[in-house]
């Protein structure tokens, strides 16, 4: 049972409130008519099934009804981050540790601790 941080409600919420909607960052081709059958078929039917870091589209269905993205490890089921539509993931297959030069928008343990402290205060 996942615990998911909704980037719009800015809270950790129970999986029951969410629906998964498959792989993230599947953009509809700009010019569908210009696509070959194969290209359109790829867009419609073909999805990654990686062992490791995977970006997924979820919706906070029983909540704010907003779609957002989740970076999840498909073996440990750990959720490394959630981010809004239009934002780029920090954790990727090429950058599994989420190393960034600039200040990242991260969701790790320190955030749980910070959130808890805020709650307490």
């Amino acid at each position: 049972m996942f615990h998911i941080h909704c980037p719009y409600c800015d809270e950790w919420r129970e999986e029951e409130e969410f629906h998964p909607r498959g792989q993230a960052h599947i953009a509809r081709p700009e010019d569908p008519a210009g696509c070959s059958d194969e290209q359109w078929g790829d867009y419609l039917f073909f999805r990654d099934n990686p062992r490791g870091i995977h970006h997924e589209l979820w919706v906070h269905a029983v909540g704010c009804r907003k779609f957002f993205n989740v970076t999840r490890h498909t073996q440990s089921y750990e959720i490394l981050e959630t981010y809004r539509i239009g934002e780029r993931p920090r954790f990727t297959r090429d950058n599994p540790d989420g190393v960034v030069a600039s200040a990242p928008e991260s969701l790790d343990d320190s955030d749980i601790a910070t959130a808890a402290q805020e709650v307490r205060a």
Partner: peptide
């Protein structure tokens, strides 16, 4: 309803 939101939020914001 979720379908409409999906297209609006992810493809045609």
């Amino acid at each position: 309803l979720e379908w409409l939101e999906l297209w609006h939020q992810t493809e045609w914001p």
